[in-house]
Design a protein around this nucleic acid. Structure first.
Lengths: 218, 218
DNA sequence: TAGTGGTCTAGACCACCAG
DNA sequence: TGGTGGTCTAGACCACTAT
């Protein structure tokens, strides 16, 4: 890293091979390998078999984004957490959701809306669809007691996760439950999780006005 | 991971120690160590010396957030990239910026505003402050030719990075340059980078209407 | 096809910290 | 203070892929 930052290894430049660096620094190749693997994970260098390791010329910085449970997010701010289930219904997957989840046309999904509170202030409005074909246990679950995300996490602790973030004017329903005027700029996270290629759930989480999402420096 | 997801190792539960797992799976301890280290990096388990490894009961999901250069972001969408430097001035660090950057009161900073385009549509409005005490070379640099971020990245390829995201109504200046009405909900990224504890730069990047920030599933 | 990174082994010593 | 994870070593074989 020192040599990259002082320009000894310029952007786009080829680094010495692992055995070479091991010899130079009088250490084992495994040690060099681990160091370079970590640089690659952080997006500092690119590694290819046979082609060697290069300093990334267009450094796509990668930073860890921690996505805590809402409960944790709220309690870490020193507030009391609670949530209200607003609606629960089973429906055939509609166009957009069916497409996002790659479901057949008549697949049954559980559609939930809820509000999460920090003390008594609304914190986040959640709209979620759960794939009942994949997670049939969600049908009898009582989501007025445990929130859908925590239930899912305890049921399916490991899954692939994709999130995207957009700024939107508050739609009527989020506006009502978050207690802001329609059109107020709000941060919305769209979150989709997968289990071995099958979509488990899609959620739209609309945060309260002024919410700030921070990357962990990790 | 299989045992965690099927409940053999329940949330909060203690995992066998490394030597035990190595024996059970007939592999070297280093192999177990690497596997468990990767689980810890993904937030699946928590590890402590002497205390052992536990399944994380409150799974803070960690996902990689790729932060590409604007140029890459734009060209990956198949558009031509260009940018305009709007203003450039040297000023003493003002209250908020000085505080954010932890600078002495009269520290000189370079204050730049610019707009980035995708084809001919405004893509992002950028307001940036660069710490001239730390990066004096920024003063003579010609930011009408190379954009400030790319200049900095080539100058200081490695640095700590912190980002946060907020949804805001468009302020007058971003609104004008992004060609939207004032108050339009826009996604703003606040980005701060550090070199060994010293603040290099603070930037506010306000994206065009409808911009979607996506985490790489990595 | 040869050279590079990917991964594993068997063993060792050390730092930390819960009990 | 002892048990745990953290890290390193020296060596080996393999998978991939640029040439």
């Amino acid at each position: 890293m020192r040599r990259i930052s002082d320009g000894s290894y310029p952007p786009g430049g080829l680094l010495p091979i692992e055995t070479e660096l091991a010899r130079e620094f009088s250490c084992a190749r495994a040690t060099v390998n681990r160091a370079m693997r970590e640089l690659a994970e952080d997006g500092i260098i690119d590694r290819k078999r046979r082609a060697g390791s290069r300093v990334n010329a267009l450094p796509v910085r990668r930073t860890r984004l921690s996505v805590p449970l809402v409960r944790v997010d709220v309690t870490e701010r020193g507030a009391a957490y609670r949530f209200d289930l607003i609606s629960r219904q089973i429906e055939p997957a509609s166009g957009v959701v069916a497409a996002r989840m790659a479901l057949p046309a008549k697949a049954r999904v559980l559609h939930l809306t809820s509000v999460h509170f920090a003390d008594d202030a609304p914190f986040m409005f959640e709209r979620r669809w759960i794939n009942l074909e994949l997670i049939p246990d969600a049908e009898p679950a009582d989501f007025s007691i445990i929130n859908p995300n925590e239930w899912l996490v305890s049921k399916v602790p490991l899954s692939d996760l994709e999130m995207s973030f957009i700024a939107e004017g508050a739609a009527p329903e989020p506006a009502r439950y978050l207690n802001v005027a329609e059109g107020t700029p709000l941060l919305t996270a769209e979150r989709q999780t997968w289990l071995e290629g099958n979509s488990i759930t899609v959620a739209r989480l609309t945060y309260h006005e002024g919410y700030r999402l921070v990357t962990s420096t990790s």
